[in-house]
Amino acid sequence: MKLTNINKSFGDNHVLQDISLDFPEHKTTVMVGPSGSGKSTILRSLNLLGMPDSGHYDFDDFHLDFSQKITNKQKLAVRRSTGMVFQDYNLFPNHTVLGNVIEGPTQVLKQPREQAIATAKDLLNKVGLSGYEKHYPNQLSGGQAQRVAIARALAMHPKYILLDEPTSALDPELEQEVLRVLLQLAHEKQSMVVVTHNMIFAQRVANKIIFVEHGQILYDGDPKEFFSPDNPNERIRKFIASMTMKNL
């Protein structure tokens, strides 16, 4: 999965400035940076929820040029291979937990319902929510809702899972429930791209780290070097120190 020379503006605000990034398979790539730096815009470009103004996107057999019109067929195909988990969960309130997880497989992948239910139950078990199948989203805590959202994304068997600040809306105790699931997925070599403000989690899970500020990539590489106290970039050292204090 690779973005090349991506540009995106909202009015006069040039939020992504000619950035190029690649996201290795079976690894966890973590994007960090101050609020409004462009992390979520990059993430949304990866599953085409947000469309850059220019640049190229290579993913599997797709070679998309954002200066050309992206067809609905291309959008759907990319989205089916990239599961997205949102900060606010965005579960479907009119469906049960099980209904949320089987919605994609039955409606989009056209899987038989029995097969989708069996897979969904396995996934709910994996995220620690066995027995919650008949609950509605409003009956869940934030941590539980986010774990259902992760199960919903996994049910589509995506190549990559994209997580946009998955724990920002949670208090520390509920945050741990979600982080445990993500650590397990990372351990299973699930390809992930995570936007987070949690430096402790980032340090623990990242195989690759990207630091974004003012729509530019200030760091793209090894997490050890990034988190090292000897990191030559003073701005990054200050950012890590301030965010780590917040996380503690």
Partner: peptide
């Protein structure tokens, strides 16, 4: 967005 993200058509 959540529906689009799992590949549902409009």
């Amino acid at each position: 967005e959540a529906a689009s993200a799992i590949g549902m058509t409009r």
